[in-house]
Structure formats: structure tokens, C-alpha cells
């Protein structure tokens, strides 16, 4: 995200600004950004503090809210780890191997981006229901996914996969292979080369993709609610609790959860920028 390599630059205006439209384009950009994004976000940020910090804390610290936050962030972290593991393998296979049907595999990766989350939600719910294609097999082995926290994990894993694959792919394909050749001449086996050279070199990128999958999973709603069963304290995610509170006209309570999620999103954004800077320094 925002890896456009644009540093905050105190400008040395050596050359005259010749291209027109600066005032208009920047003016419109800032105006639109302010109206659509910043002012409404401001409404969210100040809302819970209408009750003072104590009021905000009371809203947040109820067991039900805490359980939902723990579920959303905990499962998102787990899903992000699963996605980074399989994303690494999938990206590697897509970049380095040749086989029939590779183009199809590649195109399919974007499905969770393109498929509306509600569609994904009812599809996953049908698949993992106790009588569904996958659910039936798992139930036979005593594993229940639907209407449990594991349903949350499955949906988040689905939704996060493209983030890790698509972050890794371009970096992998640009990484020069001479380090692998050097490792071989120094006596490393292929596995040693992969685990000691290739993967560590990709680490900043891998973490970037993981952070993106995590951020997406933590905020995800549509694909989860159909599968998770939404049992308070057990499988109720934070975004769903926001909606529940809104339906009860508890705006302050909804806003308090919203602020926590927004703060987390902001921290992730900063973390991503830091990761990107780290990755750039490695080049």
C-alpha cells in the first residue's frame, strides 16, 4: 500500500512548474478526500469520546465486545499466517514453474477480490455446513467448521489469499537468480538455498502481504457471517457486533468498536509503510 516510493520531499524547485492544472487537480483531490473520507471518519473518531474516555472504556471493556475483538483479530492473524504459507508456495509455483493450466491458476487467485463477499459467504456456508461437500467429510472426522470460530478462520483465509500471492509474485519474478546460483556453488543443497536464501530475502515482502491479509481479515464481514453462526462470545466478529449495536440504536457502543477497528487499521497502515521502507532498503 502506498508504496509509490514518494518520499515526503521539501521541494527544491529548480525548474519552473510547467504543467498546468496543479491547483485544480490538487484542490479537487483534497476536497473530495475531505468530504468523502476525512469528515465522516472524524465523526467516528470523536463520537465515543462524547462520553469521555471513561465512557469509551466502559463500552469497549464489556466481555462481549472484548470477545468479538479477540475473535476478529485473533482469527485474522491465524488466517494471515495460513495465507502467507500457502501464498508463498502458490506464488513460487506461479513464478518459477511451467505447467499446463498455469494461466488459469493465476487468474483464479483474484477470485476473492472479484467475488462479492456475500456470495462467498453463502457458498462457504453451504460447503462447510454439516451436510455440505466439505462439512460432511469433516464431521465424519469429528471436526465442525460451520457455526464455530473455525468458520471465521475459513472465511478469512479465503478472503486474504490474493493479498499474499499478489504481493509476493512481482517481487519474486524480479528477484535475480544469481544468489541462488552462488548458493549452489558454495555447496548449498536446493532446500538450503530455498530456506536460507530465497525465503529470507522475500521476508519483508512476505510480511507485507501477511499484514495486508490480516488487515482485510480483521475487518471482514460479508463472507463470515453466513458461516460463523454469530454466537455472542463464541463466533461473533467485531463488525457484526457494530451492526447489532446500530440496530439497537446504541450509536456510542457501535462507534467505540469502530474506533478500535479504525485505530488498528491505522497501525497496520503505518506498519505496512515501515515494512515497505525496510524492503526498499534491502534492494
Amino acid at each position: 500500500m502506498s508504496a509509490f516510493g514518494l518520499a515526503l520531499t521539501p521541494m527544491k524547485l529548480r525548474q519552473r512548474r510547467v504543467l498546468p492544472g496543479f491547483g485544480l487537480s490538487l484542490g479537487f483531490t483534497v476536497f473530495y478526500l475531505t468530504v468523502i473520507v476525512l469528515i465522516p471518519l472524524m465523526a467516528l473518531v470523536i463520537r465515543p469520546f462524547a462520553l469521555g474516555f471513561g465512557g469509551f472504556w466502559t463500552e469497549i471493556s464489556t466481555p462481549r465486545v472484548l470477545a468479538s475483538l479477540r475473535l476478529s483479530f485473533g482469527m485474522a492473524a491465524l488466517a494471515a499466517v495460513i495465507d502467507s504459507f500457502f501464498g508463498l508456495i502458490i506464488a513460487w509455483v506461479l513464478v518459477r514453474y511451467r505447467f499446463a493450466g498455469k494461466g488459469l491458476l493465476d487468474a483464479l487467485i483474484d477470485l476473492p477480490f472479484a467475488l462479492p463477499t456475500a456470495v462467498a459467504g453463502i457458498a462457504l456456508s453451504t460447503l462447510y455446513a454439516p451436510n455440505g461437500w466439505i462439512g460432511a467429510i469433516l464431521i465424519a472426522h469429528g471436526i465442525r467448521i460451520a457455526y464455530t470460530p473455525w468458520g471465521v478462520l475459513v472465511a478469512m483465509t479465503f478472503i486474504g489469499l490474493p493479498f499474499t500471492v499478489r504481493t509476493l509474485q512481482p517481487v519474486m519474478s524480479e528477484q535475480s537468480q544469481d544468489v541462488e546460483e552462488v548458493a549452489a556453488t558454495l555447496g548449498a543443497t536446493r532446500l538450503q538455498t530455498i530456506f536460507r536464501v530465497v525465503v529470507p530475502m522475500l521476508l519483508p515482502t512476505l510480511l507485507t502481504g501477511t499484514a495486508m491479509a490480516f488487515a482485510r481479515g480483521a475487518g471482514e464481514y460479508g463472507s463470515i457471517i453466513f458461516l460463523a453462526g454469530n454466537l455472542p462470545m463464541v463466533s461473533e466478529i467485531a463488525p457484526l457486533l457494530i451492526i447489532t449495536k446500530l440496530e439497537e440504536y446504541d450509536y456510542a457502543g457501535a462507534a467505540a468498536i469502530g474506533v478500535v477497528m479504525l485505530a488498528a487499521a491505522f497501525v497496520m497502515l503505518l506498519a505496512l509503510n515501515a515494512l515497505q521502507a525496510w524492503a526498499a532498503r534491502r534492494r
Binding site: S176, V182, T185
Partner: peptide, 15 residues
Amino acid sequence: RERKAGFVFQQYALF
């Protein structure tokens, strides 16, 4: 990996 031939590239190829 068994040849023990040290290879040095123009672009260093350091880890």
C-alpha cells in the same frame, strides 16, 4: 554444489 568451484559474479550477488 559438489564441484567446490568458487564463483564470483560481476554484480557481486551477495546475500
